[in-house]
Design a protein around this nucleic acid. Structure first.
Lengths: 121, 121
DNA sequence: AGCGGATATGTTCCTCAAAACATATCGCAG
DNA sequence: CTGCGATATGTTTTGAGGAACATATCCGCT
């Protein structure tokens, strides 16, 4: 029985407070798909508040905001990724991909040493 | 002013509960250096309890324990890395190194989009 | 003019993980 | 046979972060 392949969680830590990890990347992706911060949050069972705070943090960390949003209007409002936002998301995905490939040998080596009963469920 | 280079935090997630990240890797390294779980924990200002729990978790996750320990004796006791422990640590460091190199281009691209005032201190 | 749906933001409550504290045990040295 | 230094493990306390709840605001449509 081959257990589920190990997954990589990569976080880039800039300076002291700003960082980018899987959570924010996924949120960006879902905002692009849904066109809404609230819908993006719901789709990953995250409270709107939390989603909004993550967006605010990201917008503050980069030179230009990653997410632009508008209130009111026909459908109440909405949000979309800016050019910078799309670029950041693309770079992060590329980073994940490149790193995953580069580390596959070590990952396999580690997995070979693992106990093959990860859970007694 | 070139701000401090971004740092990578890489975590390998096996299955549901077992995972290996920078904290455990550093702990292993310090256990090897100090020959003691307690001293290793102190050197990274971690309580003995926490250090010991991490060791227990790792020992349980792999086929063979990574850290062997003994109580009592001339100096009260001690701990050292097993063959497996050394192998796991080496693989993790190699993983960090390979991934860091593989992702340098994307890291640079992300850094270029960053606001260059990471903190107002 | 008012409704609807989404952004924006504050406040309170709750949970769980980490810290702190407290022992117990072990085994050689002297 | 006692004391030391480290491992081993349980109990209590604390604190930070998230969840939940509550509004406020915006603006096109009908």
């Amino acid at each position: 029985m081959t257990q589920p392949p190990p997954r990589l969680r990569i976080r880039v830590v800039f300076g002291d407070d700003a960082m980018l990890g899987p959570g924010k990347a996924d949120l960006l992706e879902r905002i692009r798909e849904t066109g809404s911060i609230a819908a993006a949050g719901r789709s990953m069972s995250m409270s709107y508040k939390r989603a909004w705070m993550l967006v605010e943090t990201m917008n503050a960390a980069f030179q230009e905001p990653l997410v632009a949003s508008s209130r009111g209007g026909a459908k109440g409002g909405g949000a979309y990724l800016t050019e910078t936002g799309q670029a950041v998301l693309a770079q992060y995905r590329a980073l994940e991909s490149a790193m995953s490939e580069a580390g596959s040998a070590q990952i396999s080596a580690l997995q070979a040493l693992l106990r093959n009963t990860p859970s007694g469920k």
